[in-house]
Computed example of a mutant assay.
Amino acid sequence: MEGQVQPITIDLTVDRQTYRDVLRAILHSILFHRLFGNITPQVYEVLDVTLPAVRDDAIEKLIDEKVDAFWRAVEGGPRRGQVSVTFSEKRTKKAFLGFGEVHENVPWEQWVVNTELRQPKSEDDRVMLHATLARKLTAALKTILTYTSSERGRAAVPRISSAVGISPFPFDINARVGGQEV
């Protein structure tokens, strides 16, 4: 898949009480459906929605670091931001004039989770926000499941040439707030 990758987008409105659990659960769900190595499954319960997750110390540490960095940036500045997960294929090209080889990561799929931080003004507002967020989480899980099991989603995955580690493909998790990477 050459050129620009069309991102799959998930939009969520979170509050201070739920943001960490929501972002962790969504990132874990994406990785659960796109890591092709041997993974140990687990689940996250967020607002009575059950989402799949990956039990792996390195993955959990990476997600925690990105979610915490994202929160620090959102809490002190703009109320909107995004966390993206980009999967790439490692390709080898001949170097200039055919001397040596150059390795590059070519993206084949990107997930973008747009978030907005909203603080409820009352208990009724909080209950409504959480009910809406639970519906959005269910819809996000359906989006992940539908895309990854669709013909288009399966066709996006490059040929797996090695089965080393939890993922045969490099992936990055990036957080952006106010146009700046955090």
Rank of each mutant, 00 (worst) to 15 (best):
Q119S: 15
D124E: 12
T115M: 09
N105D: 15
V127G: 02
S88M: 14
F70V: 00
K94G: 05
R126F: 02
M128N: 04
V127C: 02
W108A: 02
W111D: 00
S122D: 03
R118E: 14
V112Y: 05
L129Y: 02
M128S: 05
V67G: 04
R79M: 06
D124V: 10
A131F: 00
K94Q: 10
S84R: 14
T92E: 09
V102F: 03
Q82W: 08
W111R: 02
A69I: 07
L129D: 13
V127I: 10
P120E: 02
S122A: 07
N105L: 11
K90Q: 10
T86C: 12
Q82D: 08
N114T: 01
V85F: 01
G81K: 09
K94H: 09
K136H: 10
G81V: 04
G100M: 14
R118A: 12
W111L: 02
G76K: 08
V85P: 01
N114K: 15
S84C: 02
R126S: 11
K93C: 02
M128V: 11
G100N: 06
L117I: 06
D125Q: 07
R91C: 01
P78Y: 03
W71C: 11
G77P: 13
Q82C: 07
G77Y: 01
V102K: 09
Q110R: 15
T132M: 05
V112P: 15
V106E: 13
V106F: 10
D125E: 13
V74M: 09
R91Q: 13
F96C: 07
K94T: 08
S84G: 01
V85T: 03
H130T: 08
K121P: 06
Q82R: 15
E75Q: 06
V74I: 14
E116K: 13
V112L: 04
N105C: 00
F87S: 14
R72I: 03
Q119C: 10
S84Q: 10
Q110C: 07
K93T: 07
H130C: 08
K90D: 08
V127E: 14
L129C: 12
V83K: 07
V106C: 07
A134N: 05
F87D: 13
V112D: 13
